[in-house]
Design a protein around this nucleic acid. Structure first.
Length: 270
DNA sequence: ACATTGACCTGAGAGC
DNA sequence: TGCTCTCAGGTCAATG
């Protein structure tokens, strides 16, 4: 699930439920999700502390601690953040649990253990070390910055969109949606996009991600709340295209299954 | 530079 | 019912 819109929803959830309340305990039931910190150290660094502010960069969620330092959360393919009151309601696959003084619990849930939880002293330094490009929804990330980020690249446009060092936040699902909305074939080489196509791509990028956040990415019935023109709702081989009479087709692009409408997103040349 | 593949992990669903 | 296979919204390293 967790691409930029999902992580933004997690961030808001954490900000509304878990800031400025004392952490009584941190329970790590699956140390393999920890990155660069032991369960013991994580627990002792957080116990008695409060979470103060949140920040998201791409698919990473960073949470500032009251006496310095940040908690870092990445969600892999199956991560989630859930809060609950009664321990009987603890979700399955709760890997790291934060117990707060107001008797609510926050669970870092992750079935496949591909995400990670860690600590860092400095958020900016963390972003640098992860080699993350600009956050896709940052206001400063405008068309000019987008063009600059793609400059000199010749890979398939979908690969570039998903490359977190080019821009941070887009994954397999939203890349497909963005390319569908921009009417571009995912294998189009970046250096063959003319200014018009680049403009369409940039606008689709912003619009799709914003729409997903606004409609509650990952929530119950999220797909139904998306515009009917979205590919996300019909992401299966052979499904009818939401826009023309064509059929959705599945292909592989840079190793990932990609869905597209060959009529709306024709491959030019090659 | 870029694409491809396998590895890391677990679980759901398809097919037999 | 139960087994085996494939695939999944993310990264990373090795290889061509």
């Amino acid at each position: 699930m967790p691409e930029l819109p999902d992580v933004e929803i997690f961030r808001r959830h954490l900000a509304h439920s878990s800031l400025k309340t004392r952490i009584d305990r941190v329970a790590v039931s699956e140390p393999r999700v920890l990155e660069g910190v032991s369960a013991r150290t994580l627990a002792s660094r957080l116990r008695g502390r409060r979470l103060m502010t949140t920040r998201r960069h791409g698919k990473h969620l960073l949470v500032a601690l009251d006496r310095g330092g940040w908690l870092t959360l990445h969600f892999g393919m199956t991560g989630d953040l859930q809060s609950f009151k009664d321990m009987a309601d603890e979700p399955a696959h709760d890997r790291v649990r934060f117990d707060f003084a107001d008797d609510h619990h926050l669970a870092y849930v992750n079935v496949r253990l591909l995400g990670r939880v860690g600590l860092t002293d400095d958020a900016d330094e963390f972003v640098r070390k992860e080699e993350l490009g600009p956050d896709a929804l940052d206001h400063g990330f405008d068309l000019k910055a987008f063009k600059k980020a793609l400059e000199g690249r010749r890979s398939a446009v979908k690969a570039a969109l998903m490359d977190q060092s080019v821009l941070a936040g887009v994954g397999n699902i939203y890349a497909d949606e963005i390319l569908f909305q921009a009417r571009l074939h995912p294998k189009t080489p970046v250096d063959r996009l003319d200014p018009k196509a680049l403009g369409r791509l940039f606008r689709a990028l912003k619009r799709v991600l914003e729409t997903a956040v606004n409609r509650g990415a990952g929530s119950e019935r999220f797909l139904e709340r998306l515009p009917s023109t979205y590919l996300l709702r019909r992401r299966e081989d052979g499904a009818p295209c939401p826009r023309c009479k064509g059929r959705i087709k599945a292909i592989k692009v840079s190793g990932r299954t990609s869905y597209l409408c060959p009529r709306c997103q024709p491959a030019k040349g090659t």
